[in-house]
Amino acid sequence: MRMNEQKSCILIVDDEQQIRRLLKVTLQAHQYAIHEASTGEEGLQQASLICPDLIILDLGLPDITGMEVLQRMRSWSSVPIIVLTAKDQEEDKITALDSGADDYVTKPFAMGELVARIRVALRHATQSINDPILRIGELVIDLAQRIVELNGERIKLTPTEYDLLRILAINAGKVVTQRQLLQQVWGDHHNPSDSHYVRVYIGHLRKKLEEDSTQPQWIVTEPGVGYRLLSPD
C-alpha cells in the first residue's frame, strides 16, 4: 500500500467477542482499519463519530435489534451495511435488504466470502452511475441504447428481460430481492403473489445468457431471497 492511500474504515457491530476478534484480525490483514461495537446503541454512536466506509452488522444484538440499528442508520446515512444473519432466516435477510442493507452473510461464514462481499459493497459505494456503459466481464450493457452484448455478440431481450438484467447489472455482485425486482420492473401495482413473474423472466434471461441454463454462471439464485449477477473481480 502506498503511503498516500487511506485504509477503508470498517465498523464491526457484534456482541460476540470471538467473532469480533476473528473479523478484526482477518480484515486488518486485508489492510482495513477496524473499529468495534458490542451493542446496537454503541454501534450507532460509533457510526456517527467515526463515519466508517462500511459497517458489518449482526442482526442479533443484546439491547436493540440489528434491524432497528439498520433502519435508524438509513435515516441519516447511506454507508454500505453488510448484515450477519443466522442460518435459515430468509425472511430476516429479505427484510434487511429491503430496509437498506447492501448484502448479507450467513453464520457460520467463510472469511473469503465476506471479504468478497466487502469489496463489492465498497466498489458500489464509490462508483459513478453516470457511465452509460456497464461492463461486467464479457457482458456489456449500453444503458443509453438499451443494447446488450455477451462475448461480442448482440443479445436480443424483451423490454422486461432487459429491465431485469439492467437492475441486476447495476447491482452486480450484490443480491437483489424478488420484492425489489418486482417494485423496480413492475412498479407499484404488483403484489407479493406476482413473484412467479420474476422466476419466469429470470428463466428466459438464463436461456439467453447461460451456456447451460440449469447450471447458471451469470445469474445465481440466493435461495428464498432473490438473485445475484456475478461480478468477476
Rank of each mutant, 00 (worst) to 15 (best):
R119H: 10
K93S: 14
E16H: 06
L84S: 02
A29G: 15
I118E: 03
I170L: 13
E68L: 05
R228N: 03
K107P: 08
Q184W: 05
K207V: 12
Q215N: 13
L164S: 04
N191H: 07
T158F: 03
G152S: 01
I56K: 00
G152E: 03
S75E: 15
L49A: 04
L59S: 01
A125T: 00
L97P: 03
I167H: 13
P62C: 08
L61V: 11
S213F: 14
M1L: 11
D131F: 09
H204Q: 12
V25H: 04
L182V: 06
I10G: 08
E42C: 05
Q127K: 11
L229K: 06
G187C: 04
R123H: 15
D212G: 04
A116E: 13
Y197P: 04
L97H: 12
E42F: 03
E91W: 07
V148P: 12
V176G: 10
Q217A: 15
L181W: 00
V220E: 08
L84R: 07
V175H: 09
Q71H: 07
I50N: 11
N171C: 05
E42R: 04
F109R: 07
E211M: 07
N151I: 05
C51V: 07
Y227F: 14
I133H: 15
P192Q: 09
I94M: 06
L44G: 05
A37Y: 05
H35I: 10
W218Q: 01
H196F: 12
V140A: 08
I64E: 00
Q184K: 09
Y162W: 04
D142T: 00
G187S: 03
S75I: 00
D142W: 11
R206V: 02
S213T: 03
A86P: 08
R2H: 14
E210Y: 02
S231H: 13
Y227A: 09
G100T: 00
E16M: 10
I55T: 08
H204W: 03
D98H: 06
Q183I: 04
Q89T: 11
D188L: 08
K93Y: 02
L139A: 06
G224T: 11
Q31T: 09
K24W: 05
S193W: 10
K87E: 09
R123C: 08
Q6P: 01
Q28I: 06
E90Q: 05
D212E: 15
Q71C: 06
T65D: 15
W186Q: 01
I147V: 15
L157R: 04
P159A: 01
A116V: 10
A144P: 00
L229N: 00
E41W: 02
I141H: 06
Y32T: 02
E68P: 00
E5N: 12
I118R: 04
L157Q: 06
Q71V: 00
K156C: 13
E113W: 04
